[in-house]
Write a protein that binds this DNA or RNA. Structure first.
Lengths: 152, 152
DNA sequence: TAGTTAGTTCGGAACAAAACGAACTGTAAA
DNA sequence: TTTACAGTTCGTTTTGTTCCGAACTAACTA
């Protein structure tokens, strides 16, 4: 099932606990507008406490948001923003930290391995250019999404 | 220390066990050409069995390779290809699998959520373009590295 | 053939992460 | 003011990961 596959994907790539990943996958793949706490217990077959803990984690990480329906006390949960936007933002952050780390590794090699710095250093520059290009691509894509949302 | 930082980085991003991540970080940051089993035990202060298990994991995942020195029975380990090349290749693979997954999610939404497919589908296309652009960037960068190596 | 070198494999200990059940809190309706 | 609902918190249990030591193997060496 695609939900399981997507769940495993979130588990690995976003370092989410299994249940949180499954819940998020359910939200992303469903056409339903908002799930109640009970529904999620039912669907995942997990306990109240586990669902509570993992929903709160997802809320805290801003993967999900909730709303209430007039008159009712229940909360309904849905994925905040789009799956794709979140993916892009996450990727953006990893690229920024990769850039920083590569710069450190380059600097280290320059100072400590001067004998092969020329080689390693040059490749470091290529990689730096690569990351800058990535940053650009992500920024442009996020802009395209914003544009699309605006005229909708 | 940078080795520890890089170790944590590999642990998180590549889902490596702590010792494997540390060993790989050591290889990446050192100017030394090849480490023996014993040296790695000494440096990491880990047991024979742990070093064995984790070296074999890194070999299996192609992070490392080994060679022998004429006459000697010992194996010497080093990182295969460059750190940066490996990073790029890994990123390339994640992008390919992201592309496949997005296509599945798009297809799923098209079939199961026709009512909001227009919106989700459109963003899916933006994302698809994004991934194609990424693929291109990675391919070009790997080419630049190959070119550089060739004329060296 | 016995001993040394260079590792591998297996079972378990120590620890960490995830899920659970039961008791609890806060709010709202009866 | 009691009861029902919607969820939270906390201590325990279950499950999973990482590392280790001890016994083992395979290849060479004296």
């Amino acid at each position: 099932m695609l939900i399981e596959e997507l769940g495993l994907y979130f588990e690995r790539r976003h370092n989410l606990p299994p249940l949180a990943a499954r819940i998020y996958a359910i939200m992303v793949l469903s056409s339903q507008e908002g799930f109640s706490f009970e529904e999620l217990m039912e669907i995942t077959q997990a306990s109240k406490s586990s669902v509570s803990t993992n929903l709160n984690l997802l809320l805290q990480l801003k993967y999900l948001e909730y709303y209430t329906r007039p008159g009712k006390r229940k909360r309904y949960f849905r994925s905040s923003g789009s799956f794709l936007q979140n993916m892009l933002k996450e990727r953006f952050e990893t690229i920024i930290s990769d850039l920083e780390l590569t710069q450190k590794v380059n600097k280290f090699n320059q100072e400590n391995n001067p004998e092969n710095y020329r080689k390693k250093g040059y490749i470091g520059n290529i990689f730096h250019d690569f990351l800058e290009q990535e940053k650009l691509n992500i920024e442009q894509t996020l802009q395209r999404i914003r544009d699309f949302k605006e005229q909708n």
